[in-house]
Design a protein around this nucleic acid. Structure first.
Length: 122
DNA sequence: GTTCTAACA
DNA sequence: TGTTAGTA
């Protein structure tokens, strides 16, 4: 598949369409979450695939996954930009472990809600 | 004017 | 992450 040259944008536009700040975009690159290209003047240039990738990264970040784990999950062979792409077993185990920890947090928060409900009801 | 890197009242 | 400084 050929990349559309018309889809290349610089950081401000990439930030606008993804909802991330330019600062965040540079941070994602620094953490190896995205790899935007570079223009002759040194400016970063975001192709459609990279913009798409930013969207995926953000959704994963929203789910609470640590950037370090996201970096490994997305650098895996099969998982490039497809959210549904198969995740290698070793990484899947880490994601599941993280999910379990989130579940524990949910239980604690639920308990806190109950405590507050009791306070308000009592 | 926009982006870049580096760094922090 | 924000923000500012000094550039290219």
């Amino acid at each position: 598949m050929t990349q559309l040259v018309v889809g290349r944008v610089q950081i401000s536009e990439a930030a606008r369409v993804t909802g991330a700040t330019a600062r965040s975009l540079r941070f994602y690159e620094q953490e190896g979450l995205i790899q935007p290209g570079r223009c002759a003047n040194g400016y970063r240039d975001y192709c459609a695939a990279t913009v798409d990738r930013v969207l995926l990264v953000r959704s994963l970040l929203d789910s609470g996954l640590p950037t370090a784990l996201i970096q490994r999950v997305l650098s895996a062979p099969a998982a490039s930009t497809e959210p549904a792409a198969p995740v290698p077993d070793a990484l899947r185990a880490e994601v599941e472990l993280y999910r379990q920890r989130v579940a524990v947090q949910v239980e604690r928060l639920t308990a806190r809600l109950s405590a507050l409900d009791d306070l308000l009801a009592g």
